[in-house]
């Protein structure tokens, strides 16, 4: 029981990170039907920006007391801004020209952008993993049989707060409504006066911002950043988005948490080397029985 709860908590923490990344995939897919392969690398970039700020502040000796909280906030905000701008920049430079191109052209472009980003991050930070400063004190707390670290609580709380904010933004704000309208029908949206280019750019900004949050909490949780992190995490997060029903925001969250727990429990019960096999086998099985993912709507067939 004790170990079950510990693995559950770990799975939730891992899942929170995957869910944040998965949301970025799902938002972009929802609006452009593009699998943004470079998204995982935007997450890596966010992680390194946060890492850079924290290392700098620690060297300046300001990371204690109130300075610690401000420093963490500064790192988080910097990661969010940097990732958001990077993602929007990619859209502007690489994807916008390809809106009317054959479906696979933007996909290959995204793969190319991903390679370029990985190489640039490697040139910037080297090809070895870089330690992420342990800024959040991590005493273990006990709640009955459940033992969790403060760090875990911070990671999950931050992720959930971000998801709630996203939910309200998409459902309530004018921009959120415009996003949903463009996702449903780009031509109709532009007929009713929505600026499609701007809405798509904002979607990329938001997806990037989510990747920035993920980059920060991922760095805290894993204790390092690595130029290829985005590949593995991106693959699992993308799987999470599809598992939940791609294009569906709640689905991406659900999928993220499920994949996180699946990874944690499969490592515990059948061994770490089978965790990828477990994740992808479950994905295939789910899709065989629910072809549009867990929460996805059945697509109307084109006539």
């Amino acid at each position: 029981m004790h170990e079950f709860l510990a693995q559950l908590a770990n799975g939730v923490e891992l899942g929170a990170i995957y869910a944040l990344i998965a949301l970025g995939y799902t938002l972009v897919y929802g609006i452009l039907e593009l699998i943004n392969f470079a998204h995982g690398d935007v997450y890596t970039f966010g992680s390194f920006v946060a890492l850079g700020i924290l290392v700098g502040l620690r060297a300046a000796g300001v990371l204690h007391g109130a300075g610690l909280i401000l420093g963490i906030a500064a790192a988080l905000i910097a990661a969010i801004l940097a990732s958001a701008l990077l993602n929007a920049g990619i859209e502007r430079l690489a994807y916008r020209r390809l809106r009317k191109a054959p479906r696979l052209a933007p996909l290959i472009t995204a793969i190319g952008v991903s390679f370029m980003l990985e190489n640039l991050i490697e040139l910037w930070q080297g090809s070895a993993p870089v330690p992420f400063p342990n800024v959040i004190p991590n005493p273990q707390l006990h709640f009955g049989a459940l033992e969790v670290g403060v760090q875990q609580i911070v990671v999950v709380a931050l992720a959930i707060a971000t998801m709630i904010a996203l939910h309200f933004f998409v459902q309530r704000s004018k921009l959120g409504k415009a996003m949903r309208a463009v996702a449903q029908d780009r031509d109709a949206a532009s007929l009713v006066g929505i600026n499609v280019d701007r809405t798509i750019a904002i979607t990329f900004l938001i997806a990037g911002a989510l990747a920035g949050v993920a980059g920060f909490v991922g760095g805290v949780s894993f204790g390092s950043a690595w130029f290829l992190n985005g590949f593995g995490a991106g693959l699992r997060a993308f799987t999470a988005a599809v598992l939940g029903g791609i294009g569906n925001i709640a689905g991406a969250m659900l999928g993220g948490f499920l994949i996180g727990m699946l990874e944690s429990f499969s490592t515990w019960l059948i061994g770490g080397q089978w965790s990828n096999v477990a994740v992808f086998s479950v994905l295939i099985l789910v899709l065989v029985f629910r072809p549009s993912g867990l929460l996805g709507e059945t697509l109307p067939e084109k006539v």
Binding site: F222, W268, G271, G272, Q273, N276
Partner: peptide, 20 residues
């Protein structure tokens, strides 16, 4: 004994198991 999968970032699941 355990073997880890490529691209693994989270080792806490494995470590929690080893702890036992």
């Amino acid at each position: 004994r355990d073997h880890i999968a490529p691209d693994t970032q989270d080792f806490k699941a494995l470590l929690l198991k080893i702890k036992g």
